[in-house]
Write a protein that binds this DNA or RNA. Structure first.
Lengths: 297, 297
DNA sequence: TCCTATCCATAGTCATAAACTATGGAAATC
DNA sequence: GATTTCCATAGTTTATGACTATGGATAGGA
């Protein structure tokens, strides 16, 4: 007897149909069918009559269904109790990509400390592909990343669509132009982050959409390095608006491109089936609040 | 969260030691260790302090242990309830090898019908290797087979040590001898069952122990065929005492070999972890009773 | 009554998880 | 200080659960 088998039984009982149940629990119908058969063999009882297009619980199936529901409820509560226990310290791990971490997390963590002093937040800054894997493997509770992401094991909640701004040095000719469009960038040298960066991928996709390949002159590991080099005038870049810093005004100019400004969509991901602790819920509420603020500005 | 992980947690809690716990649940220590680590990662809490040679529950671990025990108890009861339900028909499948099935099962089933009218017994006659696999895969609840058997997934309960008797035709020279020993058989033609038969294997092993290879003249599929051929005088055989039939006296002579009579040990096997239903328990009690009777005769 | 659609079960294949063995590091014991 | 006993990691193998393709049975509609 396995937990996924109990879930499948409950799903079939509630939908009346193996196919519908398989859609509900995100497996293929033959897979669910086989697991129900395996379970029936193990407990030595038929749990469902297969009546043409209907799956109907047998008498034994009705008895078993109550037990299955109780077991699943207990399992849910086992995880919940650890997450919500009044005396156990709450601790979560949050991931964020490098073009989000230094700009969003400080505000989020500050608010969390103010409102939920008992909540400990560990941070992991990493690239999207690593954070995706970490979420799947339960190494982080939540991760803030840029879309697109495809992994059916993850729950993906969009947060905001964030403008990406052209950034040039104050002495750069483009800094003086009234209107800058994508084709204006075709001959420029780009300073961007490394190949693991989803922002770097977004920039290359945006340029591709405008039928040119960006001339990548510099690959950097940190946004601060990108800013420093752009400020020196050796190239241009594109950064998310959230990366904008008041101090940047000394040497940088942020420009919203005319005729279709690039954007990226930020989302928060977590494991589809992993219980979400009270601490994770608290953090998520603050994250949603901050995302709404950013979207409105 | 998986059921085997809960079992491992309980085992570690009760033994205080990963190594001891792994022995208890029949997996290797690294495997248990890895599963505990995976579970801790999933629930986001340390469940055990690893203090040198001791594994001690953390506070979270103590909370979790209660839940784990409750879940495992519910799971045990889910299976038990189906097996013991007062109104659900009880039905079990019993396997037996061909040199046991026709001699033991009729008596057992008759007694079961008398004492437990609500118990339905399905029978599967097959060779040991197939019954072993069927028990592992839950296709039979119990199976009566000859030893040896090695499979850690099975629970093996010896039933009785059964004499194997030499069988010859009434006109056979050995029928008239006062004392027959193993070397007397070295030049005889043997009539035995097919290569899948564990009895055939036992005969060959017995002859091997006496430093000769049996001359196998006939391979048969049924004990009745063996008896018929031996009665005709075309060869000799060795059959378990339980196969002896009053009608055999017309044409056969059963002889207990002097100087070390061959035996075989019958056992009943079942799946180690599968819940044993009330019906299976009832049958098993009758089987033990009959085995004791046979052992005394 | 026949055709189509919708269901479940089987077969074959593939990917992943859980098992293994080998082994290393740390701590306890002698 | 050496040895023993524990747990964790790494690499490999095996078993399980997933997939797709497809067939048989049944229900519904024309």
């Amino acid at each position: 007897m396995e937990i996924h088998q109990l879930r499948y039984v409950v799903a079939v009982a509630e939908t009346g149909n193996f196919t519908r149940a398989s859609e509900r629990v995100n497996v293929s119908q033959p897979s669910l069918s086989q697991q129900i058969i395996n379970l029936e063999s193990e407990v030595g009882r038929k749990l469902f009559h297969r009546l043409g297009r209907k799956a109907v619980l047998t008498e034994a199936g009705e008895v078993f269904l109550e037990r299955a529901r109780r077991i699943l409820f207990e399992i849910e509560n086992a995880a919940k109790e650890l997450g919500d226990h009044p005396t156990l310290e709450r601790r979560i791990t949050v991931g964020a990509i490098p073009t989000v971490a230094p700009y969003l997390l400080p505000t989020l963590i500050t608010r969390c400390r103010e409102r939920h002093p008992n909540l400990q937040i560990d941070v992991r800054e990493d690239f999207r592909i690593h954070l995706t894997r970490a979420a799947v493997e339960g190494e982080v509770d939540l991760a803030i990343v840029a879309l697109p992401i495809k992994d059916i094991r993850l729950s993906i909640e969009p947060l905001l669509t964030e403008p990406l701004l052209l950034v040039v040095g104050k002495q750069h000719p483009l800094a003086l132009k009234q209107r800058v469009e994508a084709p204006d960038l075709a001959e420029e040298n780009f300073v961007i982050l490394g190949p693991s960066s989803s922002l770097a991928s977004s920039i290359q996709r945006f340029c591709g959409d405008h039928h040119f390949e960006p001339r990548v002159g510099f690959r950097c590991a940190q946004v601060a390095t990108v800013k420093a080099l752009v400020g020196l005038g050796v190239g241009i870049s594109i950064l998310p608006q959230v990366a904008r810093d008041p101090e940047d005004a000394n040497s940088l100019v942020y420009i919203k491109l005319s005729g279709g400004s690039p954007t990226r969509e930020l989302a928060v991901i977590r494991h589809q089936q992993r219980y979400q602790s009270r601490g994770a819920e608290q953090f998520l509420a603050i994250l949603r609040e901050r995302a709404a603020e950013l979207a409105a500005s």
